[in-house]
Amino acid sequence: MAGSNPNAKPMNLTLKVWRQKNRNTQGGIVDYQVKDISPDMSFLEMLDVLNEDLLRKGEEPVAFDHDCREGICGSCNLFINGRAHGPEAGTTTCQLHMRKFSDGDTITIEPWRAAAFPVNKDLSVDRSAFDRIIQAGGYVSVNTGGTPDANEIPIPKEIADRAFEAATCIGCGACVASCKNASAMLFVSAKVSQLALLPQGHVERKTRVENMVAQMDKEGFGACTNIGSCAAECPVGISLENIAILNHEFLAAKATSNNLA
């Protein structure tokens, strides 16, 4: 392999993988052995090796979500050895490398757990609750027309930077998976503060936070107790400051919006 370390010794690992046929059946942990895993492989490539092995044996491959494999889409959600996206801070599962493990290790791999994230199959969970929260208000309405000038709306650099930081949320759900309360507040707060900071977001500022929080509650996510597991496990480092902004935006909207219902 190009760029690989010639001294890196291939590893043999024991995997304890959550297997579950579908939403309505009980799942359980199944043990597998994988051999000759290169330390340069990503975690998902290691699972590809396992699946090829299973296919050769005529067994059902392990279902897991993935798409971009470069840390930007937020699909690759695995709970690895008791941590969302594994032991490495600031990484998605697809960016986690096997060199973080050692020959002979046992690795437990489970799906995200939360009442609002039902398991579809094996390690693949249904995160459409996040989509419905975004649909409830995580957008700005823009009238069509001529192309606006790029610098028409002045935004101070500091504000633009903070909004951009919040915008880096990839919607992976590690925050929910790690939280003792299965709270989605970090995810919701990232979108709410991103759009509250920017002038484009001000039109729907109050209805946005009211509707997104209402949808978040409806989906059955828990209430934040400021434990901080979410921010510690977030692969892009969304900070708890956003949750304070969300709380503040919510209170201000409830106190001053024209919505009486």
Partner: peptide
Amino acid sequence: KNRAARGGQGYVSDHIEQNSSWHSR
């Protein structure tokens, strides 16, 4: 409510102690 939000099936392996303090939980 928060316990219910976590869902029935817990993690087989959970190292929450690595990302938060005992008393906050």
